[in-house]
Amino acid sequence: MKFLLYLLLALVVVPFQTTLLHYASVFGVRPDLGLVAACLVGFLGGELDGLILGLILGCFQDMLSAGDLWINVVTKGGSGFLAGLAGRHMAHITPAVMTAGLAIISCLSSAVFLYSMNPAGLDEVWLGVRSTVLVQAGLDAALGAGLYLVFRQRWSDDRMVTEGAL
């Protein structure tokens, strides 16, 4: 079941992001669905799940992006892994924590992109931060928190069952 869910995510997220998500863009910036999916799976399923799904989604995103082939693989895989670690070491995850965590991870991921663009000076860095990094972090955090709220109950049940089994 979990495998099928991950497979579905892997096949749906990136095509949806490239074709339909621009209708939901804010100031021309779209949320990074790959990042959000990898982080949520990491939070809920553990660092290994987050890492693997992040790597797959990153690979797909790199195939459909004009950038270098490594950037999305590294950032999405790393994001999933970081989220998994955070999820494992946090006793109580609230939507506010999830929002802040996703915003931080999104900013870190965007920083890698910004670095890879070789900005000419501080002006360009600031322009990138202002126009893309912060907007995308806000969108990612809002989307991730919303999805977490939707799936929280189910996740709590699963966790209780797991803890009970342990």
Partner: peptide, 14 residues
Amino acid sequence: VIGRDATNWYRGMI
């Protein structure tokens, strides 16, 4: 044209 770049960092199309 069937899509836009998968990230927000490049101006590309598919």
